[in-house]
Design a protein around this nucleic acid. Structure first.
Lengths: 141, 141
DNA sequence: TTTCATGCAAATGATTTGCATAGTC
DNA sequence: GACTATGCAAATCATTTGCATGAAA
């Protein structure tokens, strides 16, 4: 993994905890919330502390090994090798659809030319309803 | 204000606190964070409690008197009469540019036809850099 | 005079931080 | 052995909640 090399180059240590966290993010397609990562880490190796995981994630983000974004205030991570892209997330079932990086590029161009605003639309989370959940009856509650 | 009528119709009470909060949201163009609203309310009437303000905002959202969205985990409100629209927010100076409601409509169409995904892109917050801040030298830190 | 709303204080929940100890290089 | 990383516990910070009191209708 390129990340382990990056760690070494920076004089940072490759601890078992960091290996494990890297491995988990690496093996998952799509994004993981910080909580999911904590859960998976602790399932495999009980006793690893939350703080360690948060600190590692912050570190890896700084090294551009993982990208971080936010879904309703929570941190969400995916590994950098996936490249930038967007997620359409179903608010009913949670299913995620990965979308192309340039989905928003026309909007970036519009904002640039209209307002001179340089938008960062690199890893958007798009809320909505997936095909299946649209078909379910939506109770008026 | 239509909101006060809505309150009465629902058998809800029009208290001074609610009046004030409505007035503040109404008088501001653009969005306000919950914290800003709390600050403005307490400047005008010291002693109004945070919980009251949060509860009122929640209530007003339920009545569709205000719209709520999120900027980096924080609640952000604007009054409903402005209609749906989007904000391009400069991450350097905080300046906000209001954008047209249908800025994202082509993306909505793309997601719909490609994946059958029904996106809710009603009140997006678009991070980026405004014209002025792009011109400032970006120190490498 | 009966709901509904407020204030207060305490709870929440994700994330962060200080500090002593332990592990990597 | 030096310096970094970890675990633990306590601190944050925005938001929420329970409950007794107070105010609209």
């Amino acid at each position: 993994m390129s990340c382990t090399i990056t760690l070494k180059e920076k004089g940072l240590k490759l601890t078992p905890q960091r290996r494990l966290i890297l491995e988990i993010i690496h093996d998952s397609e799509g994004h993981l919330t910080a909580e999911e990562i904590i859960e998976y880490v602790q399932t495999r190796v009980p006793g690893v502390n939350k703080s360690t995981i948060y600190r590692t994630l912050e570190l890896l983000e700084g090294l551009d090994c993982v990208f971080r974004s936010e879904i309703s205030g929570r941190h969400v991570y995916h590994h950098a090798e996936e490249g930038h892209h967007h997620h359409a997330v179903c608010r009913s079932c949670g299913k995620t659809i990965d979308c192309d990086e340039d989905l928003f590029s026309s909007i970036e161009r519009t904002l640039e030319s209209k307002f001179g605003f340089h938008a960062d639309l690199h890893h958007m989370v798009i809320p909505g309803l997936c095909r299946n959940c649209q078909q379910k009856v939506q109770p008026a509650k």
